[in-house]
Nucleic acid binder design. Structure first.
Lengths: 154, 154
DNA sequence: GCAGTCGTAACAACAAATGTTGCGATCAAG
DNA sequence: CTTGATCGCAACATTTGTTGTTACGACTGC
């Protein structure tokens, strides 16, 4: 008799896009309440993570021109433009480095018909899919996200 | 003066879908050449990986009903149906466990408006995107992939 | 100067994907 | 009914990426 089973719970995948959207909407809401800048400390408390994680992410968003930071006393982060003009695609491209799918780790056998042709074939499929993904992400603005967040039932 | 830089090359993302497509097209081509079954050893050689990796993947495809295996001498793998009737979505669902994006690792501050509403808001966005991804994957059959593979210029 | 906050390096903790070894189970062939 | 080929699967190693944490210098308003 064999003994299998072994339930597994998946916990991975990355939450960068989620956390980045969290940070941006948080900053925006805070600014709408009359504040100038938000600190990584405050955002980290809301997102239940470490301030350095937030600074790292916001640093990438700054490279993409979505936020800016001030240093010194009264330092912190602010948006460079309205949430309406930021899409999830902007955020995604700022914080997600690679592509969704990968090719073989080691080059497949180039002497084999399949090994030779599989990568270009899959590459084309993957490019199409990522293009579609980008189009979908571009359809959602951060303002949409904030509206949705505020609409959550209490 | 600060010293930064630190180029990084991304090498991750998973290749399961790629390897699974490789295996399926390989088996099909081999069967079209008159063979009954393909061994994990042969497929692993073509994909330049370890036979156990192939057996693991094919095991998941078998659960999904796409392939079957025989044991004993003259054992190996064969397709249960034509490549035309298998889509990349079938393969994707068989070998990719989780979802594309993740929520926060730790529950965000439920006392904060953003912390409270962000997860349902993002959840909805992510579900839409994955639905679109599935639609795209469903449009490509393994027969399409094989045709593309064979069309690669030598 | 001082205090508060960013910028960034360095490292620890954790998890997932992949690779590898080992061995029992299975079964066709002889 | 033994033999050899191959799968099934557990166990563990390796590599890589993500997230969390500590530390400390840089910056700047007061």
């Amino acid at each position: 008799m064999k003994r299998y089973g072994r339930e597994e719970v998946i916990v991975s995948a990355n939450s960068r896009l989620t956390i980045a959207a969290h940070a941006l909407t948080w900053i925006s809401l805070y600014q709408r309440q009359g504040h100038q800048v938000a600190t990584s400390e405050q955002i980290a408390t809301s997102a239940n993570t470490n301030p350095v994680v937030i600074r790292r992410l916001l640093g990438e968003l700054r490279k993409a021109g979505l936020v800016e930071s001030r240093r010194g006393v009264g330092a912190g982060w602010s948006l460079t433009r309205e949430l309406e003009s930021m899409t999830l695609l902007d955020v995604y491209e700022a914080v997600e480095p690679g592509s969704l799918f990968a090719m073989h780790r080691a080059t497949p056998d180039q002497g084999c018909v399949i090994g030779y042709g599989i990568q270009p074939a899959m590459q084309r499929v993957y490019e199409d899919i990522e293009e579609t993904l980008r189009r979908e992400l571009a359809r959602v603005t951060l303002e949409d996200v904030l509206r949705d967040v505020l609409a959550a039932p209490r």
